[in-house]
């Protein structure tokens, strides 16, 4: 047999290791090669450079914010697009951005009712809350007191929790009013209850049973939009965000009774407004790989511009549009610096 170079031999065993699910490589034929393979084995776990850099810049920003100092300077738009993950760490593709007053009290509500964990708070000069982020389950809710450009807008949110009965009881203690207590008779098949909090938000508090859409794990937080002519929202989201309708249940008259729609790694739900569940135009924060393209697509699909794409001092490039139902969509790509 012709003797192959060490480079060839290493690559051969390495290739076998890289495509194998086995935790250990096959025993290499000679001692020299075996030593190299031990190094190669560990290199499989090498962290991504982009992740290392993104996390560092995120921590720096967090540290600066917690000091109350000025935010780092904005960067120019085209820098390193694609070099970092497009979602800000801790957020998914869709996050409800709830603007209610006083936001500080609302944050307390999230902590008390849903065991929310405050991850970030940026005060405005008048000591109102410019922006805050509260982790709930494996998702998050962003919160602000808002301003003239972004006025108060409570939202409806479907929350998956471990114990809907206990969470429901805590919301009532924290001042919410009940639509109905958790029941097993909800059409979704989930155990499901509904309340309105003192700030006007609706919370559909549920525990999954049986099948649930889970693109990449079940999301604790899903915005829920009650719409007039809800069926028209689906083609809008498909055209604007490349969304995918994952389950559409319609009445015999064609009204959307319930639909789950996926954007990226998260979902939102819609239905035709009915009874006490009337439209509540709200704010949604959507992370996409290319905000400029999505912004243009959204306008073509019939949205109107609130804000053209701009680099933000907090390390995102973001734009804003309003859909035909009055919902505002913040379209962002995390730049990672």
């Amino acid at each position: 047999m012709a003797k192959r170079s060490l480079a060839e031999q290493l690559d051969e065993v390495l290739q076998a290791m890289l495509v194998s699910l086995r935790p250990r490589p096959e025993e290499a034929p000679d001692r020299n090669l075996a030593a190299l393979m031990r190094v190669a084995q560990e290199l499989r776990e090498l962290p991504r450079e982009e992740f290392r850099a993104t996390l560092k810049s995120d921590l720096q920003r967090r540290a600066i914010m917690s000091e109350g100092a000025a935010a780092p300077p904005a960067r120019t738009g085209k820098a390193q697009a694609g070099a970092v993950h497009y979602q800000r760490p801790g957020l998914t593709s869709i996050t409800p951005y709830i603007i209610v007053r006083p936001a500080a009290q609302f944050i307390e509500f999230l902590k008390t009712a849903f065991e929310g964990v405050e991850r970030m708070r940026m005060p405005a000069p008048d000591s109102s809350i410019m922006h805050a982020e509260v982790a709930v389950g494996n998702g998050a809710i962003e919160v602000s007191d808002g301003n003239e450009q972004y006025p108060t807008a409570p939202a409806a949110v479907h929350l998956y929790v471990d114990d809907p009965d206990a969470a429901y009881a805590r919301t009532l203690q924290a001042g919410a009013t009940s639509f109905y207590a958790p029941t097993d008779d909800h059409p979704s098949g989930d155990r499901w209850g509904a309340v309105k909090d003192p700030f006007g938000n609706h919370w559909y508090i549920a525990k999954p049973r049986g099948w649930t859409p889970r693109p990449e794990g079940l999301r604790s937080v899903q915005p829920y939009l009650h719409l007039r002519e809800a069926h028209k929202m689906i083609p809008f989201l498909e055209a604007a965000f490349g969304a995918e309708a994952m389950g559409v249940h319609k009445s015999s008259e064609g009204a959307v009774l319930h639909a789950t729609i996926r954007i990226g790694n998260a979902t939102l739900e819609i239905d035709e407004a009915h009874g006490e569940f009337q439209p509540m135009p709200c704010h949604l924060h959507v992370y996409v790989p290319d905000r400029d393209a999505v912004y243009a697509q959204a306008l073509r699909a019939g949205a109107t511009s609130i804000e053209t794409p701009q680099d933000k001092p907090y390390g995102d490039r973001a734009a804003g549009v309003k859909d035909a139902w009055g919902n505002s969509w913040f379209i962002a790509t995390h730049l990672g610096r």
Binding site: L55, K56, L59, Q60, A63, I64, S66, E67, A69
Partner: peptide, 9 residues
């Protein structure tokens, strides 16, 4: 000084 956290990082 939390901004110095990056050195530890």
């Amino acid at each position: 000084d939390p901004a110095k956290f990056d050195a530890l990082y």
